[in-house]
Computed example of a mutant assay.
Amino acid sequence: MHDACLRLAPAALALALAACASAPPPQASPPPTGAVGMRSIDKQWAGAQRMELAANETFQMPLAEAGNAAPHYPQELLAQRLPPQTVCLSVGIGAQGRVIGSRALAAGEGCPTTPTPQDPRFVEAARAAVAAWRFDPAFRCVYPGTKPVDEQGCVSGREEAVPVSLAYSFVFEQKDGRGTVRMGE
């Protein structure tokens, strides 16, 4: 029993003992799975690359479908034991929610300052994965007058599906001899 629990006033001792005895055990970290993470880096883009909305409009970002597969670390590159490689992509999403293209972003284009991957197969792996992604489309909601303050969704407005581009950052790395991909910083 902990000394701190024993020094409490008798009235609080029962409550304190219950708290000391019922503290949850520390949770073990789940074992690494080699799963891929991704993060949008669009907020780093300059204002000129962002959509401008009128006072009577709102915007809904596209929502990625749950089954979108993440990139895989190219198996043929494992033997090279390369340091982590960051790939940033601009992903074009059409008005129907399908990926219409992607391109690699350089450090000056909103990608975190990292060197270009040592092997183009990292970029190819990322582009191949995002080519199959699907989204619920982005849309602009245009209201006939002033947009309602408390409206959820686009109930009193007109939805206009719009194509957009989003930026994602992937970090390909090796851990314990296995290739993994995680979300970029």
Rank of each mutant, 00 (worst) to 15 (best):
T113I: 09
A104G: 08
P148T: 00
F135A: 06
I100P: 10
S156K: 15
G110P: 00
K147D: 10
C111R: 05
A125K: 05
A132G: 15
F139H: 08
P112K: 05
Y143T: 08
A107P: 02
S169M: 04
A131P: 12
R158L: 13
E151Q: 06
S102T: 13
P117T: 06
R121G: 03
W133E: 02
P120G: 10
D119R: 05
C111H: 05
A129F: 00
F139E: 03
A106I: 10
A129V: 00
R121S: 09
Y143K: 11
A104H: 09
K175W: 15
E124K: 12
S165F: 14
A104D: 08
I100K: 14
R103F: 15
T116A: 07
W133P: 02
A167E: 08
D119Y: 06
K175E: 15
R158K: 14
G145F: 11
Y143F: 15
S169T: 10
D119M: 03
S102W: 05
A104R: 11
F139N: 03
G145T: 13
F135P: 01
C154V: 03
T116G: 01
G157P: 00
R134N: 13
Q152H: 13
L105C: 04
W133T: 04
Q174G: 04
K147R: 15
R140D: 07
A138L: 01
S156Y: 12
E173H: 15
S169A: 15
F135L: 07
A138N: 01
A104L: 11
E151T: 05
G153C: 04
P115F: 05
P120I: 10
L105I: 01
R121D: 09
Q174Y: 05
R158W: 10
E109L: 05
K147G: 11
T146W: 08
G153R: 02
R127P: 11
T114P: 00
F122K: 00
F170C: 07
R121W: 06
V171E: 04
P120M: 08
L166G: 00
V142R: 12
G101L: 06
E109V: 00
E160T: 11
G153Q: 06
A107C: 04
A104K: 12
A128I: 10
P163E: 07
T116M: 02
R140L: 09
F122P: 01
Q152N: 13
G153I: 04
